[in-house]
Amino acid sequence: MDKNKSNKKPEKEDHQESRRDFLKASSILTAIAVAPATVAKAAEYNLGEKISAAFETTPVNLTINGAKKQLAVEPRSTLLDVLREQLNLTGTKKGCDYGQCGACTVHVNGQRVLSCLSLVVMQEGKEVTTIEGIAKGDELHPMQKAFIKHDGFQCGYCTPGQIMSGIACINEGHAETKEDIKEFMSGNICRCGAYPNIVKAIQEVKNGGQKS
């Protein structure tokens, strides 16, 4: 790009100018979009002779919902994808895959975290609890009951994340007031808009003195 270009041109001209520059940078009429250079470089590195080694899986030992698991995973596999695709624990949801919605919330060693941004290899020796692991047999967790009672959901897709987050929110001591709950639950997006009912459910469990 032309580094000496003035910023003071009228908007429209500027617009066209920068467009031309971009086109110039990408060889006039043909814009070449390739895999980003970072990826291409890394791919080259990985795909050469080291190919077999690079794609070997790594063993990981962890506990999921109380059961010890020995898994063989690629280092790049996220906890979310392994739960859903390898272990068929599909209660944990993928809503964005970038840590922006909270649908994938699980507890790791009792803390709420986002499984979409957690690499499984980094969970060695840890205890993971998912939505499938909080009821005691047929007896629902108080938070699950409260969600049903207060209709804290519609489509149900964000619900497991909201419930896991809600339980942790109380345990953390961030459910003292309604405003606190709203702030500390803001990492769990509900597009159906069940928020007020979710808050009611959390308040009820909080006031009932329930802990996970």
Partner: peptide
């Protein structure tokens, strides 16, 4: 990993 894993998923960092 909250930022790095995100960037790696989007091929911004590799």
């Amino acid at each position: 990993g909250t930022n790095l894993v995100d960037l790696m998923k989007r091929n911004v960092m590799a």
